[in-house]
Design a protein around this nucleic acid. Structure first.
Lengths: 142, 142
DNA sequence: TTTTATTTTGCAAGTAACTTGCAAATATAA
DNA sequence: TTATATTTGCAAGTTACTTGCAAAATAAAA
């Protein structure tokens, strides 16, 4: 991701432009799958402190730049919000697809869910879907 | 839950029948929503050690008696498997419904999902769905 | 552009949520 | 009812974060 793009994004949220923030945003933007703290640490090992990376992740979540993905793993995973999700009031639902081969988690937009009939007397307001299977990349290899 | 029922369940899995196991199973059976370690601890505080409760939870997950529910919270939540889920080969998908008022998580069976169109080249094998909204109980009160 | 105010960072220490090792207690098998 | 195997309690350990505080970096004001 171009530095000018990350800077613009930070400025919009009235967040100070710093090196960690630029670099973490850039890493998120270069992947099309979700990242954990350890994924980020791998790339930023020597440059920044553990606490700084955690604090940056938290700042990004609070400012609607990334979202946490509910998986059964102990460590939290995060992915960039799509443009549609940036406005909290019009958050678009999407599917998280976990590949059982590479263990990567992708955000899939444009998945159509029709006719979800939930038990009566339960009022449905939003949905989070975790799909499991084989991703396009792993499917092509095998 | 009757003690004879919990004993039968444990015997089927070739697990030794112990007091913690009976009591934890019984607590799960008395609720229709998911429980965390802290929910269990509240009831079993004085009787059993922390490590014992955690070990019992893990034993139950390994033996397909309960399942972990993927939520964004830091602490794991667990619920009893339904009879249909007991056989690992015919695990039935169901929805987890998180009530935004009481924060309880219910397993809803019999939810019909039609026509989920996922991106091509992603091979879908299973689905986990976390619904949010208002449960029957909280809906009735308000 | 320099000064001032505010926020962010690094380091070390702290906390929450579990897990493990080991000897004693308990459950099942012989 | 003794022998074998598993489970439990206690204490210590680990993992995944979080917090306090002084120093450094960023942005706003002059």
């Amino acid at each position: 991701m171009k530095e000018s793009t990350t800077k613009k994004l930070l400025k919009e949220r009235k967040l100070r432009i710093t090196t960690v923030r630029n670099e973490i945003l850039s890493i998120f933007n270069d992947r099309n799958y979700a990242l954990s703290f350890y994924d980020l640490e791998k790339e930023l090992k020597t440059k920044f402190d553990t606490a700084t990376i955690y604090r940056t992740i938290n700042t990004f979540v609070e400012n609607n730049i990334i979202h946490q993905i509910p998986l059964e793993s102990k460590t939290a995973y995060y992915a960039l919000n799509s443009v549609l999700e940036e406005d909290e009031n019009s958050r678009k639902e999407h599917i998280h697809f976990l590949c059982r081969i590479c263990r990567r988690t992708y955000c899939l937009e444009n998945v159509i869910i029709k006719d979800l009939k939930i038990n009566k007397n339960f009022r449905l307001e939003s949905l989070k879907i975790i799909a499991e299977g084989v991703c396009d990349n792993c499917g092509a290899i095998s």
